[in-house]
């Protein structure tokens, strides 16, 4: 079972590289049962959306 700390690393890396099958599987299982990490994953999506908005000078 992944630790939350390791899960957060993978949730960052899935935005930068394709995860391996084992990593994807482990992460999917983890966020299924861990509410904190489930929220963290949504937060990563919000961060990316915010950066996109900011980077087009839409958020200023």
């Amino acid at each position: 079972m992944l630790s939350c700390q390791r899960a957060t690393e993978l949730m960052s890396q899935e935005q930068d590289r394709p995860l391996s099958l084992a990593e994807r599987f482990g992460l999917r299982l983890h966020v299924l049962i861990c509410a904190g990490c489930n929220n963290y994953r949504r937060q990563m999506a919000v961060l990316r959306a915010a950066c996109r908005r900011f980077g087009s000078l839409g958020g200023q």
Binding site: S3, Q5, A35, N39, Y40, Q43, V46
Partner: peptide, 16 residues
């Protein structure tokens, strides 16, 4: 995180 790498209770990510 605590020593086992789980979220500290006070730091668990919330809904945004």
């Amino acid at each position: 995180f605590d020593r086992r790498g789980h979220w500290q209770a006070s730091a668990r990510p919330g809904r945004w």
